[in-house]
């Protein structure tokens, strides 16, 4: 365990997030850029899964950061910056769908579901430590419902806690727990 990879979350811990956020709200461009650089990868990862399109994800993340900057003075204080940004991006994406900028492919999208795709097999196959079970489990993720996939994604791919996931997906804490429990149970049954 000693060679445990440092995740970016650990690096980010060093930043005093409330200070970063307050500086950003005061219009300090360094803070704006820092937030952007720290969270772009994760936001793009999430956005491109929601949209199934990298170019649309890019555009909507631009919109997100422009919205954040122009409204910075009226934005609330935050508890978890990553969770807040994910919530904000999700609402930008939902607005985009609602505005009819794109045909809704998935009929249940507007009821809170996302057209969510998880495919980690390629990366997994590339890794030396791959074990059959892992590959199998990850492939099985595709059989989950969109909501389950999104909850699993936010919990494990993005390391967000149940409370944050609830905020992002607009669900109660217990519903998030249940959703993840149910998803894991159905994965387990496949094993």
């Amino acid at each position: 365990m000693s060679e445990q990879r440092k995740t970016s979350d650990q690096r980010k811990k060093k930043v005093n997030e409330p200070f970063l956020w307050e500086s950003f709200k005061k219009g300090q461009s360094w803070a704006f850029k820092r937030i952007y650089m720290d969270y772009y990868d994760a936001l793009f990862n999430y956005g491109s899964r929601m949209l199934h399109s990298e170019s649309e994800a890019k555009d909507l993340i631009q919109d997100l950061f422009i919205r954040l900057w122009t409204r910075r003075r009226s934005l609330p204080g935050i508890r978890n910056l990553k969770g807040y940004l994910f919530t904000a991006l999700r609402s930008v994406i939902i607005d985009y769908f609602r505005a009819g900028s794109r045909q809704v492919v998935d009929s249940d999208f507007l009821s809170g579901h996302t057209n969510f795709n998880i495919s980690a097999e390629q990366e997994i196959i590339d890794r030396e430590t791959t074990k059959e079970t892992e590959t199998f489990l990850l492939q099985s993720l595709d059989s989950l419902s969109n909501r389950e996939k999104e909850a699993i994604y936010l919990r494990y791919y993005q390391n967000l806690d149940h409370k944050e996931i609830g905020r992002i997906m607009g669900l109660r804490y217990q519903s998030v727990r249940n959703l993840i429990h149910k998803a894991l149970r159905s994965l387990r049954e496949k094993m």
Partner: peptide
């Protein structure tokens, strides 16, 4: 552990273009 790490790695994969 392997699974969690694989998922994290995938979730924070760097974008293939210039930020």
């Amino acid at each position: 552990i392997g699974l969690l790490r694989a998922m994290r790695q995938e979730g924070e994969r760097e974008v293939p273009f210039s930020k």
